[in-house]
């Protein structure tokens, strides 16, 4: 079975965002990049599926700058057999372009299961899985936190508002992975060494014209300076008073 895992290189989640001089992107100097946190669950799930199936090829793919070689080498150390880096020098904020470029590659290299993180923590778009699935004509379940694979089909569970949903889906399919699906393990020294011998292909991404254009990227207006209204339970009546009459929140 062929399994594809879609990866994105994003600023670390503890990054304090600064806006670049163009007013349309972030200042990247001094920023630490890492693999998108949700992609960890997708990559680990690919490894687990390969273990379960006995025979499978796991290909990790990304669209990003050349520097993403580091993250892609990392996927090889954590279970991917092969990595593909489709290079671009621009921050791709337009999910439709990414989905189109990924679908072009997957159509040429068909997979039964395509895994991705439920969203990337930069654009927070949460759209890749179903967008990609529609272009491929595949089934899709998003934000999955439990997965059971069978022959030609699978059952998945996902959180919805105030409940859990159990979904059955045919393969081939795209599955987006949420926290809770598995517990990703860090690579060990042996697998890091082995990763150096695995193939990492690099080619320019074929991105179509974007469906959206960035007008601006701004920092949100700062909140008014907070105030401490008191100490201990004695401050509760003052809080109630403020919530009622000043904030009109209760």
């Amino acid at each position: 079975m062929d399994i594809v895992v879609c990866i994105k290189r994003v600023p670390a989640t503890d990054t304090a965002i600064k806006i670049a001089a163009d007013g349309k992107s972030i200042e990247t100097s001094g920023v630490t990049f890492e693999m998108n946190a949700y992609d960890e669950f997708a990559l680990e799930q690919a490894r687990l599926l390969k273990e379960q199936l006995g025979e499978a090829t796991v290909t990790a793919i990304t669209i990003g700058p050349k520097e993403a070689q580091k993250e892609m080498r990392g996927t090889l150390a954590r279970g991917a057999d092969k990595a593909v880096l489709l290079t671009t020098e621009h921050w791709v904020y337009d999910g439709a372009s990414t989905a189109e470029a990924l679908s072009t590659w997957i159509k040429a290299n068909p997979a039964q299961i395509v895994l991705c993180g439920k969203q990337a923590t930069d654009a927070d778009n949460n759209q890749m899985a179903s967008n990609l699935a529609a272009r491929l004509g595949y089934g899709c379940v998003t934000e999955v936190s439990k997965l059971e694979l069978a022959e030609g089909t699978f059952t998945a569970e996902r959180d919805i508002e105030g409940a859990r949903e159990v979904v059955t889906c045919k393969t081939p399919a795209v599955i987006s992975c949420n926290k809770g699906l598995n517990e990703p393990k860090p690579a060990n020294l042996k697998s890091i060494m082995a990763a150096k011998k695995k193939p990492l292909e690099e080619m320019p991404a074929e991105l179509p014209d974007a469906a959206m254009e960035v007008v601006s990227l701004e920092l949100p207006p700062p909140r008014a300076e907070g105030k401490i209204i008191g100490e201990g339970a004695d401050a509760v009546p003052a809080l109630i008073e403020l919530l009622r009459n000043e904030a009109k929140a209760i």
Binding site: Q127, N131, M212
Partner: peptide, 23 residues
Amino acid sequence: HTAMGKDLLPRVSALLETGVITD
């Protein structure tokens, strides 16, 4: 932008050969 919205509208947008912005 709910569990269903996040799942459905990107799929609709792809069928309409256009983009989608979420949340």
